[in-house]
């Protein structure tokens, strides 16, 4: 998240010209805190079609391999050249619900974060 002013770098410490040298460093910014609904995956309904993955605006659905613990269990999955459903990146998922809306087998549904608050106490 945004740091306090005294934690920020001085003008001599940053690259000139406003250039950002570290590609993709926005990954450190955790947009998962925005979420009010959480996608939940049901492997027993999932075919690993990756339609959720392609539609995710936040790169928050991981492309898993044959050993993915979250992979779908419907159909043949174990081809090393093909991705399987690899779970959600909850650090970045904003909870928009597109994955649940586009899933052809209804293997994802959205739950209010409050449900997880109750279970996990502080989250």
């Amino acid at each position: 998240m945004v740091t306090e002013n005294h934690d920020k770098k001085g003008w001599k410490e940053i690259p000139i010209g406003g250039i950002i040298e570290e590609a993709g460093n926005a990954e450190r910014y955790k947009t998962g805190t925005w979420r009010s609904f959480r996608p939940v995956h049901h492997p027993e309904k999932c075919t690993n079609c990756m339609i959720c993955w392609v539609n995710c605006p936040d790169t928050a659905i991981k492309a898993g391999d044959v050993n993915s613990p979250d992979k779908g269990l419907v159909g043949k999955n174990d081809d090393p050249n093909l991705a399987n459903f690899g779970g959600f990146d909850y650090e970045h998922c904003k909870g928009c619900g597109i994955c649940a809306a586009v899933c052809p087998t209804k293997a994802i549904d959205m739950h209010p974060e409050t449900e997880f608050l109750d279970k996990e106490g502080e989250e």
């Binding site: 002013n5 920020k8 940053i14 950002i20 040298e21």
Partner: peptide, 12 residues
Amino acid sequence: PVTVGPLDLFDY
């Protein structure tokens, strides 16, 4: 890969 011309607000 570098990012040139980002949004640079009151922080920097």
